[in-house]
C-alpha cells in the first residue's frame, strides 16, 4: 500500500490541508464550513499521512496527539460556555462578542467561535484516534 506518489502527495498536502481546514473552520460562521467540517478535514490530513507512511510513522508526528486534542476541544467548548456566565450578563452558554479594529480591518471574535474551535478539535482528535486505532489492528 505504500506508494511513492501517495507518500509525496501526503507529505506535502498535509500542511495545506491543515491550513485549509483552519480556514474552512473560520469562515464557517458566514460561509459553508465550520467546526465539524474543518475538524474532519484536519483529521483527514493526518489519516492520509498515516495511509501513506504507515500508522507507526504517523504517530511520531507532533500533531498526532488525538486524546490531547479531544481534551483541548472539550476544554475550549466549556470555557466558551462559561464565558457568558463570567463576563456577559447572560447565563451559561450565552454568546459574548467583541470587536477589534486595526488598520482598516475589523476582527470580530466571540465565544461561539471559541466553541466552534472546541468542536473542531474534538472532531479532529476523535477521527485520528479512531482511524489510528483501527489501522494498528491491521498490522
Amino acid at each position: 500500500m505504500e506508494t511513492e506518489i501517495l507518500k509525496i502527495a501526503a507529505k506535502h498536502l498535509k500542511p495545506f490541508l491543515l491550513i485549509l481546514s483552519l480556514f474552512v473552520f473560520y469562515r464557517g460562521h458566514n460561509e459553508p464550513g465550520g467546526g465539524f467540517i474543518g475538524g474532519l478535514m484536519a483529521g483527514m490530513a493526518l489519516v492520509l499521512y498515516a495511509g501513506a507512511f504507515g500508522v507507526e510513522e504517523a504517530k511520531k508526528l507532533r500533531l498526532a496527539k488525538p486524546l490531547f486534542f479531544i481534551g483541548l476541544g472539550f476544554g475550549l467548548a466549556l470555557i466558551s460556555s462559561l464565558l457568558g456566565l463570567l463576563v456577559g450578563q447572560g447565563g451559561f452558554m450565552t454568546a459574548v462578542w467583541n470587536q477589534w479594529q486595526f488598520a482598516g480591518f475589523s476582527l470580530k471574535l466571540g465565544s461561539p467561535l471559541l466553541f466552534d474551535l472546541g468542536v473542531y478539535f474534538v472532531v479532529a482528535g476523535m477521527l485520528v484516534k479512531v482511524i489510528f486505532s483501527v489501522m494498528e489492528e491491521d498490522v
Partner: peptide, 12 residues
C-alpha cells in the same frame, strides 16, 4: 453575527 444560519444555530 454570522451569515451562515445553520452554523450559528449549531454554535450559538
Amino acid at each position: 453575527y454570522g451569515e451562515n444560519v445553520v452554523n450559528v444555530i449549531l454554535v450559538d
